[in-house]
């Protein structure tokens, strides 16, 4: 067992975890972040995405012990008025919504890198996330809308 501190959405969580504990499980079970979801467990769907600092991480493949002291953002940590969150909601970019937190965080990462992403940049950045409801058209619109809100032309 190791004692680690995860700073989740700004709040420090001190917790004891085993060597093999996954960041996914620790966030869900100990920090209560159920927006972080297991869709595949093998890094192939993006439902478990979190941001560590500004960088996306598939928490189903991440060992919790490696994130001691890390600043972690999950979708429920984002404000309702956050430009990405509000753009997704306004564009109807959620059907069942199960996959959407992952897309929201990937979009934040994308916009940090490319404030005005091209269509191909959007595709490249989001193609590792699966939305089985097929909300991709609305997600595309939401990403562009968020970019516009963040840095109006």
């Amino acid at each position: 067992m190791n004692e680690i501190t995860l700073i989740v959405n700004g709040t420090p969580h001190r917790t004891r975890v085993s060597d093999s504990a996954l960041l996914l499980d620790v966030l869900r079970e100990q920090a209560g972040c159920t927006s972080v979801r297991e869709g595949c467990g093998v890094g192939a769907c993006g439902a478990c995405t979190v941001l560590v600092g500004e960088t996306s991480v598939s928490s189903c493949l991440a060992l919790a012990t490696r994130y001691d002291g890390a600043n972690i953002t999950t979708a429920e940590g984002l404000d309702e008025n956050d430009d990405v969150v509000s753009a997704f909601a306004d564009c109807g970019a959620a059907q069942c919504g199960y996959c959407i937190p992952g897309f929201v965080l990937m979009t934040r990462e994308l916009l940090a890198e490319h404030p005005r992403p091209t269509s191909e940049q959007i595709t490249e950045h989001l193609e590792g996330n699966i939305c089985r409801c097929g909300t991709y058209p609305e997600i595309r619109t939401a990403v562009s809308t968020a970019a516009e809100r963040r840095s109006p032309r």
Partner: peptide, 19 residues
């Protein structure tokens, strides 16, 4: 009109069975 609890879905705070 927008879907019921659109913001909840986007922020992932809809409680599913496994949650």
């Amino acid at each position: 009109r927008a879907r019921y609890d659109a913001l909840g879905r986007v922020r992932g705070v809809v409680g599913h069975v496994g949650d």
